[in-house]
């Protein structure tokens, strides 16, 4: 089972979606089960009032409504909310087409109807086994409908103001070198430096000194700042300057782009 679904467009652009694991999906399904039960009981309570007029009709409506709710709940919510049920919203999951294409109604219908096979012989054993064995963590219904369930990543950026507050950044005197640093540092390198600072207090002092030293040495190979600006800087402060330079919002950039469309992530 892979943890990622990678889609590469003919234009050479690649996306990666994080596939939802069995535990997250099981929790999402449990939440949906509770929602269906509550919904069913609520509808039954309302329909029971019709018993005064016709007990037969009320009983028939209750039988049909529970059946319809059980099946239609998943189909309707996933169609209206573009691949999400209440449980999936809470667990930040989404059903999507396995090729990244538009999710179609028949795919939603099939994956929900074929749930019966996944439930066999009980407690989602077949579906769970299929998910573990499948390359894309698909249960049988997903395989037939060509859908996957992905985790909607929540990219919480660390509070840089808190992290870097009150520190003078000597790199600011050299805006052209800062620009070069931003251009040469890869996203992974930048995130590594950021994470090292964020987790500073969780590191043993010796390990921290060694890690910061190695990272600072690496960033020094990317851009050479004038010696008089950096020679007295400890490795940790050098790294703080690097992170501040890379992640600092600049005038004219922040607030310029729209929010990431929810249905696309």
């Amino acid at each position: 089972m892979n943890s990622e679904l990678r889609i590469r467009t003919p234009e050479g652009i690649a996306f990666a979606y994080q596939l939802a694991g069995p535990v997250a999906r099981c929790m999402s399904w449990s939440i949906d089960l509770v929602v269906v039960l509550v919904l069913g009981m609520t509808v039954n309570t309302v329909l029971a009032k019709f018993g005064i007029i016709s007990p037969d009709l009320a009983s028939a409506l209750m039988t049909v409504s529970y059946f319809v709710i059980t099946i239609a709940y998943g189909v309707c919510t996933e169609w209206v909310w573009r691949g999400q049920t209440v449980g999936k919203r809470i667990m930040r999951l989404r059903v999507m087409d396995a090729q990244g294409l538009r999710l179609q109604f028949h795919q939603i219908l099939m994956r929900n109807l074929l749930r019966f096979a996944d439930l066999l012989p009980g407690c989602y054993l077949v579906g769970g086994a299929a998910m573990v064995l499948s390359r894309r963590a698909q249960r049988l219904g997903d395989l037939a409908a060509n859908t996957v369930v992905v985790h909607i990543a929540k990219h919480a950026e660390p509070d840089l103001d808190q992290l870097l507050a009150g520190k003078f950044n000597s790199f600011r005197q050299f805006p052209h070198l800062e620009a070069r640093l931003r251009q040469r540092a890869t996203p992974d390198e930048a995130r590594l430096a950021l994470q090292a600072l964020v987790r500073r207090d969780h590191l043993e002092p010796e390990a921290r000194v060694r890690l910061f030293g190695e990272l600072a040495a690496h960033f020094k190979t990317l851009v050479a700042f004038p010696p008089d600006a950096v020679e007295s800087l400890p490795a940790e402060q050098y790294l703080r300057n690097v992170v501040e330079t890379i992640f600092r919002p600049r005038t004219g950039v922040e607030g310029k782009v729209g929010a990431v469309p929810a249905e696309a992530v």
Binding site: R182, A185, E189, V253, V257, V260, V265
Partner: peptide, 10 residues
């Protein structure tokens, strides 16, 4: 670009 994760995600 490492410095524009939000723009990249958008």
């Amino acid at each position: 670009f490492a410095s524009e994760p939000e723009l990249r995600r958008y």
